[in-house]
Computed example of a mutant assay.
Amino acid sequence: MGSHKAEHNGKINIAIDGPAGAGKSTVARMVAKALSYVYVDTGAMYRAVTWYMIKQGIKPEQVDLVLEKAKELNIELVPEETGQRVFLNGQDVTHEIRSIEVNGLVSRYAKIEGLRKMLVQMQRQMALRKGVVMDGRDIGTTVLPQAEVKIFMTATVKERALRRFKEMKDAEGITLEQLEHDIAERDRQDEQREISPLRRADDAIVLDTTRLTIDEVVDRIVSYCTIHMDGEK
Rank of each mutant, 00 (worst) to 15 (best):
35 L>E: 07
103 N>L: 11
144 L>N: 10
41 D>Q: 08
212 L>P: 02
219 D>L: 09
118 M>L: 14
127 A>H: 05
16 I>A: 15
174 I>V: 15
35 L>P: 01
17 D>A: 10
75 I>Q: 08
114 G>C: 05
121 Q>H: 11
40 V>D: 11
42 T>L: 06
156 T>A: 15
90 G>W: 13
48 A>Y: 04
167 E>G: 02
65 L>T: 12
5 K>G: 15
141 T>V: 08
84 Q>N: 15
223 S>G: 03
149 V>I: 13
188 R>L: 13
232 E>G: 13
35 L>Y: 06
156 T>R: 12
219 D>C: 05
22 A>D: 05
216 E>G: 11
101 E>F: 10
201 A>T: 00
99 S>N: 11
29 R>Q: 14
220 R>Q: 13
212 L>W: 13
25 S>I: 09
58 I>P: 00
25 S>Y: 08
80 E>L: 14
33 K>C: 04
45 M>F: 14
60 P>F: 03
129 R>C: 03
124 R>F: 03
94 T>Q: 10
65 L>H: 05
202 D>E: 08
169 K>I: 01
76 E>Q: 11
223 S>H: 12
91 Q>G: 07
15 A>E: 09
93 V>D: 14
33 K>D: 12
184 A>D: 10
105 L>K: 14
225 C>Q: 09
41 D>G: 01
220 R>F: 08
134 M>T: 01
142 T>Y: 13
31 V>G: 12
77 L>S: 02
47 R>W: 09
205 I>T: 13
177 E>Y: 09
74 N>T: 06
127 A>W: 02
131 G>W: 01
82 T>G: 15
178 Q>W: 13
209 T>F: 07
56 Q>K: 11
177 E>H: 12
61 E>Q: 03
191 E>R: 14
86 V>A: 15
135 D>V: 05
24 K>P: 07
104 G>P: 00
69 K>F: 01
85 R>L: 08
162 L>G: 05
207 L>N: 05
53 M>R: 03
162 L>V: 00
168 M>H: 00
203 D>E: 10
205 I>N: 04
14 I>Q: 10
71 K>L: 10
191 E>P: 00
181 H>Q: 15
73 L>S: 07
113 E>I: 13
106 V>D: 04
88 L>W: 12
164 R>L: 07
79 P>G: 11
194 E>D: 06
44 A>P: 02
83 G>A: 13
113 E>R: 14
78 V>G: 05
225 C>M: 02
113 E>F: 02
163 R>K: 01
160 R>V: 06
120 V>L: 04
84 Q>L: 14
131 G>M: 00
110 A>M: 06
125 Q>R: 04
137 R>I: 04
57 G>Q: 03
155 A>L: 10
116 R>E: 10
20 A>M: 07
47 R>Q: 14
110 A>C: 12
8 H>I: 07
197 P>F: 05
15 A>K: 06
57 G>V: 01
78 V>H: 11
153 M>P: 05
211 R>G: 09
167 E>L: 00
181 H>N: 15
53 M>H: 01
180 E>N: 10
61 E>Y: 00
179 L>E: 07
197 P>V: 04
4 H>E: 05
119 L>I: 07
180 E>Q: 15
145 P>K: 09
223 S>E: 15
18 G>E: 06
46 Y>G: 11
164 R>K: 08
54 I>E: 11
188 R>D: 09
40 V>T: 14
86 V>C: 15
12 I>L: 12
1 M>N: 03
66 V>R: 02
85 R>Q: 14
59 K>L: 07
173 G>T: 03
148 E>N: 13
64 D>C: 03
